[in-house]
Amino acid sequence: MHDDPVALSLPWYVNGTLSDTGRASIARQLRSDPALRNELAFWEQLAASQRQHHTASEDIGLARTLERIRRETREQAPPHSERRGLREHLGRWLGGGERWLRPALACALLVIVVQAGLHHLDRPALAPTMRGAEPTRSVPAPTPLPANSALLRVVFHPSTTEGEIRLLIAEQDGWIVGGPGEGGEYYLAVPMQRVIAATDALRRKSAVRDVAGVDVLPKPR
């Protein structure tokens, strides 16, 4: 029975984490000691047995964790009542005070709206758009589509936040290559071998309104 330091280090010789010096010393002793070789065979069998044992999917627990993060993101987003409160506050501010101020405020607002409209006509497109509780920026220029990837057009529910969209996309190993468009559509690239699974998985999500495969990315307007 070996209970010397060399024999006690054999498990780490087998798992490959011994230092080079330690390994060399054990290798030397193994050449001249048949009993030690038997012990090595035993540990190797045990190591193989341990590694064979587990067959869980690599995504084990992932959906559950992402759901918790999604819940947390929703809880952190400003509650609906707060948003309404702001509107009410603004309404009260506009409606309150002296009556003679109301026509003046209306005129001022009209001027602002007209100026904003003229400014908008001068520009080809607005970069940021608002989706759900958080701002989502348009992808400025389409990212080139790598080989072995497929393109999906995905329309999310308008209340979906950017955080939720990014999580849904990450779950499918995908990335945004275009969007959001006028209808709230995004263009995602996903690995070719995952395209069917990703399409099915996205279709099952309540945050997703529509998923379709497309061949090309529409040209930016």
Partner: peptide
């Protein structure tokens, strides 16, 4: 969050 998913996949099993 994409990095998180990747780490989850690396460590989950």
């Amino acid at each position: 969050q994409t990095a998180f998913v990747a780490l989850h996949r690396a460590m989950g099993r």
